[in-house]
């Protein structure tokens, strides 16, 4: 009789669990699906940019061939057509790059939101798992474990986007057309120069924040070294944080996420919130933060390189404008 009763009970539990599962999990699946679709969009943009770049490269080779070939009506026309195609292609490429950068920016914003969401969701799942394990709910436990693994995988993907050194730096596209007047060219050169200055300002700001974080890290290290000295040479060997072992090897407390605590009261506030927000690291865990700091350094270099490139382009455009002015005179 008891065995017979177990069947409906088990069914009831199963139904309850399935209801529970269906009520809880779609949220994570939805978020993951949205993230997937955004990733697909970025990949599509990447593919398009790569294809256009390849076409531009081959066209550049063709143009170079035409330029080195002998002069003639046919050659001139072929060169003119190739240059025209190159103009069109350059515009397409710029548009594709802008779209890709915009999509990358979007996915980075989405990654921050996903990490915030996962911070809460993972806790809930862990709580539910503990409860289910306590109840001995064999139906629910594997499912919750799978959900947790899926959450972990999604978190790693989101962190990867935030650490990406190729994070988009959005710039207003500036197209130089063959028929631009000298005045228009000067305006475009100013716009390019403004963008370069803006990038340098951002790079300086980020550089300062990275330097502050590094200086703070060094200060903690020097203080810890001092405490170790005091402990090691203290006449009574009873020193600051003795119980905690002030001289011991330990980890920075930002590693709390990943590991252990620092000695004594040493809570190392290595990153200011501004820095974390500016490089999108606020939601990253310990090791990812260290990598994020490296990424921030690379980003500074990237911005400075881009700023130099924009300045050079602005100078070229300005030179072209001056040359046109000279010709007009």
């Amino acid at each position: 009789m008891k065995a017979l009763l177990r069947i409906p009970c088990a069914l009831a539990v199963l139904i309850f669990c399935s209801t529970f599962i269906s009520a809880q999990t779609p949220e994570l699946r939805t978020v993951a699906a949205r993230f997937d679709s955004l990733e697909q969009i970025v990949l599509q943009h990447d593919g398009r940019v790569a294809a256009l770049s390849a076409r531009a490269d081959s066209l550049a080779a063709i143009i170079a061939d035409h330029k080195t070939a002998g002069r003639g009506v046919l050659q001139d026309r072929a060169l003119e057509a190739a240059l025209h195609r190159a103009d069109v292609l350059a515009e397409e490429l710029q548009a594709a790059e802008a779209a890709r950068d915009s999509a990358q920016q979007e996915i980075r914003r989405m990654a921050v939101r996903v990490l915030r969401y996962l911070a809460v969701r993972t806790r809930t799942l862990e709580h539910e798992l503990r409860q289910a394990e306590k109840r001995g709910d064999q139906a629910l436990v594997p499912h919750l474990r799978r959900s947790l693994a899926a959450a972990g995988a999604l978190r790693r993907r989101a962190e990867k986007w935030l650490q990406s050194e190729n994070a988009a730096i959005l710039l207003a596209p500036v197209h130089i057309a063959p028929g631009d007047s000298p005045g228009l060219l000067e305006e475009k050169a100013d716009l390019l120069m403004d963008q370069a200055d803006g990038l340098r300002r951002k790079a300086r700001l980020l550089q300062q924040q990275v330097q502050q974080a590094e200086a703070e890290q060094r200060l903690h290290s020097r203080l810890q070294a001092f405490v170790e000295d005091v402990q090691l040479f203290d006449p009574l060997s009873e020193s600051v944080g003795r119980e905690e072992g002030a001289g011991q090897e330990s980890f920075s407390p930002d590693m709390l996420d990943r590991a252990a605590n620092k000695t004594g009261a040493g809570e190392n506030l290595l990153f200011s919130d501004e820095l974390l927000l500016s490089v999108g690291l606020a939601e990253l865990t310990g090791q990812a933060r260290e990598e994020g700091l490296q990424s921030a350094r690379a980003r500074v270099q990237q911005m400075l390189f881009l700023a130099d490139s924009l300045s050079a382009r602005a100078r070229d455009v300005l030179a072209k404008a001056r040359a046109q002015q000279q010709e007009e005179r």
């Binding site: 911070a119 993972t122 806790r123 862990e126 978190r155 072992g245 001289g247 011991q248 090897e249 330990s250 980890f251 590693m255 709390l256 996420d257 990943r258 590991a259 252990a260 865990t285 310990g286």
Partner: peptide
């Protein structure tokens, strides 16, 4: 001195 630490989850480390 020696120390080893590991995060078992985002909420729990040992």
């Amino acid at each position: 001195s020696a120390a080893w630490g590991r995060a078992l989850s985002r909420w729990w480390s040992i």
